[in-house]
Structures are given as structure tokens and as C-alpha cells.
């Protein structure tokens, strides 16, 4: 044996198997049920939108990292997650080039200008969605009905109120990945079970919307099942980079998102408020992390 080949390092010498790419891969896996149902309801158009968005996001990330001379990190799958989430938030009839621009903007303006993964203050996918909503408001709100592709309004946007079971399964007009509560719950619960996301954010978010809308005369079950709420609560507000780092902080994040969403839905000018609610709470995340801190060990009791 050669002693010179012994490596010296500071403990610990053992590490968890889970790494960043594994976490992102798990999120992608959790999105599979909703993606599958999107293809089922909206056909190959949905598949096309998702593929284009993922390719655009990953290509943008690689290109910008190459241009700025930084290591290319597309293998951490975070750009793929962002691309897919952008596609989940658009109507099935949207031209492919628009979703490509949305995904590229999500990565370029939402993430890479801040220095890449871990440094962005706002959820990149929601930045992309907000830009698309402002730039192509007509196309972004032209919804089509499942199977028939006939233009129709979403349930939240004043369209027909479907039965709860239809709403739960997701056979309603809406954004690609948002319509099926069932698929999102399956994916979201999987992420909680695997310890990838903290239950406090979705529970705080969804619970607050339900309670708030019930108190002010809305139909809580309808408000929970309709719109972007479940996608936002399980997959967007839980983005580790843009949500707080302590348990209490995460609960505040969830409740805050729920309050803003409910206020926009009930009294705002838009039918849906999840996107802006999460973006606003993203802005508060550094503040929450600054003030909501764990109690020092030994300080709790005498």
C-alpha cells in the first residue's frame, strides 16, 4: 500500500445519495401524471408545446453559459423543469414559437442574468409566464376545450361551472398542465413523501385559499380545484431557490401566497392570481429568511 495515495479531507466522509440533479429529476417525475393527462385531453399539440418549451429552456441555458464562459450545467435538469412548467401554464392552442420565447425568457431573464441556479429571486417559470401574459394577452387567454379544441372560457374566467368530478379529473378548458387536480395531487404528494418539498407550503397555500374564499362567500372546493392553484402550490411556490429556508418561513410563504391569490380572485381585475401571488411572495422570501430563524439550541428553555 502506498501512503502517498491516501487522500486527506475534513469530515464528514459520507454523504447522502440525493443531489441536485436527483431532486430535479424527481420533480420531473412528479410532473409526469399531469403531462400525461395534458396529452390525453389536448392531444399531440400539448406534447409539442411541452417538448418545444423544454428544448428552448435547456438550449437557452447552455447557450448563455457557453457565451459567458461558465460551466454548462444542463445536466442538473433544472432548466428542463423550468421549461416544462412554462409549458404547463399556457393554453393548448398557443403557437409553438410563443412558448419557445416564454421558456427562453424564463431561463435568460428569470435565472441566468442573476447568475444561474440558486441566485434568482423569482421563480423562472413564472417570470416566463408573466412576460407571455403581458406580451401576448389574447393568445395566452384563448382557451380551448379538451378533446374538441373549441374555444371556450375557463371555469374561473366565467365559463361554465363543471361538476366537481370533471374539475377534479381536469376535463375542462385551461392551461395544459393545470386542469387535473388528480394528477397534480398525485405528483405533489409524491414529492412530499420523498421529502423533496415541505408540506407547509402547499397546505398553507391551498388551505388559506379555501378558508378565505369560504369566509367571503365563495365556493371553497371550486376555488381549490380550479385554475393554477394546485400546480402553483405544489410545484411553483415550493421551488427551493425562491422559497424560505425554515419551516415557519415556509408556512408564512404558503399562507401569504394563499391570501394574495384569494384577494386577486375575489376582487382583482384578473380571474386568476396564483402567478402574481407567488412572484410577490418570492420578493418577500429574503425578508422572511432574515427574520424567521430557528430558536438557538438551549435558548428555548431555562
Amino acid at each position: 500500500m502506498e501512503q502517498s495515495k491516501l487522500r486527506m479531507s475534513s469530515s464528514p466522509h459520507q454523504h447522502a445519495r440525493e443531489n441536485t440533479s436527483r431532486i430535479m429529476l424527481e420533480v420531473l417525475m412528479a410532473l409526469v401524471p399531469a403531462a400525461t393527462l395534458a396529452v390525453f385531453f389536448f392531444g399531440l399539440r400539448a406534447l409539442g408545446l411541452m417538448l418545444v418549451a423544454v428544448v428552448a429552456a435547456v438550449a437557452t441555458e447552455a447557450l448563455l453559459q457557453k457565451l459567458s464562459g461558465r460551466p454548462v450545467t444542463i445536466r442538473d435538469y433544472s432548466a428542463a423543469v423550468t421549461g416544462l412548467l412554462v409549458a404547463f401554464g399556457v393554453p393548448a392552442g398557443l403557437p409553438l414559437w410563443i412558448v419557445a420565447i416564454g421558456a427562453a425568457i424564463a431561463i435568460a431573464i428569470g435565472k441566468q442574468v442573476f447568475g444561474g441556479l440558486g441566485n434568482n429571486p423569482f421563480n423562472p417559470a413564472l417570470v416566463g409566464r408573466a412576460v407571455l401574459l403581458a406580451s401576448w394577452p389574447a393568445q395566452m387567454t384563448t382557451w380551448v376545450a379538451p378533446f374538441t379544441f373549441l374555444t371556450s372560457a375557463t371555469p374561473l374566467g366565467g365559463g361554465a361551472r363543471p361538476a366537481y368530478s370533471t374539475l377534479f379529473l381536469g376535463a375542462v378548458p385551461g392551461s395544459l398542465g393545470e386542469t387535473s387536480a388528480l394528477a397534480l395531487l398525485v405528483g405533489g404528494l409524491y414529492l412530499i413523501w420523498r421529502g423533496i418539498i415541505d408540506w407547509r407550503i402547499p397546505v398553507g397555500f391551498v388551505g388559506t385559499v379555501a378558508v378565505f374564499s369560504a369566509v367571503f362567500g365563495g365556493d371553497p372546493l371550486f376555488h381549490v380545484l380550479a385554475g393554477s392553484l394546485l400546480l402553483g402550490a405544489f410545484f411553483m411556490a415550493t421551488d427551493p431557490v425562491t422559497s424560505p429556508m425554515t419551516s415557519w418561513g415556509r408556512l408564512i410563504m404558503g399562507v401569504g401566497c394563499g391570501l394574495i391569490t384569494a384577494i386577486i380572485r375575489l376582487w382583482g381585475g384578473y380571474p386568476e392570481g396564483v402567478t402574481y401571488a407567488i412572484l410577490i411572495m418570492n420578493a418577500f422570501t429574503p425578508l422572511i429568511d432574515r427574520y424567521v430563524r430557528p430558536v438557538r439550541f438551549g435558548a428555548a428553555r431555562k
Partner: peptide, 15 residues
Amino acid sequence: EEAEPLEISPCIRCG
């Protein structure tokens, strides 16, 4: 293999 230095990537603030 167990002694290989680890590849460090950016913090994702997962907490």
C-alpha cells in the same frame, strides 16, 4: 471511489 473529491454545485437554497 469513496474517497473521490465531491463535485460542488451552486446552493439551491433548499434548506
